[in-house]
Write a protein that binds this DNA or RNA. Structure first.
Lengths: 192, 192
DNA sequence: CGCCGAGTTGAACTGAATCAAGAAACGTGG
DNA sequence: CCACGTTTCTTGATTCAGTTCAACTCGGCG
C-alpha cells in the first residue's frame, strides 16, 4: 500500500527523483482506520498531513452547537487540519473518517525536512497547495452568489458519487445550507 | 521601486539567495498605472503575476449583468487572474486598479523558469500560495454560515482601512451581499 | 419487535434581495 | 468657485429563498 500510495502521489501531483522517493519512503507511514474514527479533535495541535489512498474523510468544526462540514477528501486527495498544520495553532477542526480508509501520513517536520533537502519535493508542496487553492477559489465563487440549488448541482457535477458515500447532512452543511433545504432541492420542491 | 518591491517580497514571504535575487531582477518589471485601469479583461488569457508595491487592485467578474468582486489586493499582496494564470484558460475575471498603483510584474513562464532553476524561488511560490490558500479558507468559513453582519465585522477587523479605500458596492459583493444590505448594516439598522 | 439514525415533509418565520426613490459626494468644465 | 451630471451611498416597502421547529417515514439491526 505504501508503494501504491506514493505512486499515486507522483502521478497525480508531480514526479520525484529516485533520491527524493527513497527519502520520502523513510518518513511516510501507512495508516488503516475505520469509519467514524476521529484522527484530529477540536483543540488539538495537529502536525499530520494525510493522503487518501482508499476511502474518504471529512473535516468539520462545531459552531453554536452545530456541526459544519468544511472539506471532503477522497482517493488521491491530501487533507490536514489546515489552520493547525500551517499556522501552528490548536485545530478548530475535527477530522473524521466517513469510510474505512487507507491513508499515508507524514508529519509537518518531516515534510519540511524533505522540502529543504529536495527541490522537487518543494515543488510537490507548491503544486498540491496550488490545487487546493484553486478548489477553494471555486468554492468561494459558489458560496458568494449562487443559489442553494446551483451549488448542489455544481457539487454533484464535480463529485458524482458523493451522495452515495457521504451523509446528506454533511453535504448540506458543506454547501452552506440546512439538511431540510437540501432534501427539498433533491425532491425538486424548490423553484428553479 | 524595483529594489523596494523585491525587498518587500523577500521580507514578507521568504528570503532568496543572492543568485536568485540577481536572476529575479532580470525578469521582473515595474508598472505604474492609474485608478480605473483594467489590467486584465474578461476572456483574455493572462499570464501575469502582479505584486502590489503601492496602491490597491480588485479582481471581479460579471454574472447575470452584475459585477461580483472576488478579491482585493493591497500593499505587499500578490494578485493574478487566478484561473487563467494557473489553468491556462481565458480569464473570467477583470483585474482593475482601485487606486493609482505601483506594481511589479512577472510572467508565468519567467516564474516557472525561476522556479525550475532555484530551489528557494520554488519555496517562495509554495509559501505565497499557502498564504492565499489560508485566506481563501477563512473566506469560505465566513461565507458558509456567518451572517452578513458578522462577515462585515470580520472583514474590517482584518482590513481596517478598506472602507476608506474601496467603494461600498465592491465590499458588499465581496461579502456576498447587496450594497443596500451593507449600507443598512453600517447604519446598524439590521438586528444583531 | 421496538429503537435509532437518516432522510422527508409541512407551516410559520426571517434575513437579505429586489425594486424604487432620493440624498450626498465627486469631478469636470465653464 | 459654482453649476452640472455622474457616481456612490442611503432609505423605504415589498418579496422570496432558505431557516427553524416539529412531526413523520423508512430501513436497518440488536
Amino acid at each position: 500500500m505504501l508503494e501504491n500510495g506514493i505512486h499515486r502521489i507522483v502521478t497525480n501531483y508531480c514526479p520525484l527523483s529516485p533520491e527524493s522517493l527513497a527519502d520520502f519512503r523513510q518518513y511516510v507511514e501507512v495508516l488503516n482506520c475505520q469509519k467514524g474514527e476521529q484522527l484530529v479533535k477540536e483543540g488539538q495541535h495537529s502536525d499530520k498531513l494525510l493522503f487518501i489512498v482508499k476511502g474518504c474523510v471529512k473535516a468539520y468544526y462545531v459552531k453554536d452547537g452545530k456541526t459544519i462540514t468544511d472539506w471532503f477528501a477522497f482517493e488521491n486527495d491530501f487533507i490536514c487540519a489546515i489552520t493547525s498544520f500551517f499556522l501552528f495553532v490548536p485545530s478548530p477542526h475535527y477530522i473524521e473518517l466517513i469510510e474505512d480508509s487507507t491513508l499515508l501520513v507524514i508529519t509537518r517536520d518531516d515534510m519540511m525536512t524533505l522540502c529543504n533537502k529536495h527541490h522537487d519535493f518543494e515543488r510537490l508542496g507548491r503544486i498540491s497547495t496550488t490545487k487546493t487553492m484553486l478548489q477553494l477559489q471555486q468554492r468561494v465563487v459558489s458560496l458568494q452568489f449562487e443559489s442553494a440549488q446551483q451549488r448542489y448541482l455544481n457539487l454533484i457535477a464535480v463529485h458524482p458519487s458523493i451522495e452515495l458515500r457521504v451523509p446528506l447532512g454533511d453535504i448540506a452543511s458543506f454547501l452552506g445550507i440546512t439538511q431540510e433545504t437540501l432534501s427539498r432541492i433533491r425532491a425538486a420542491k424548490v423553484r428553479i
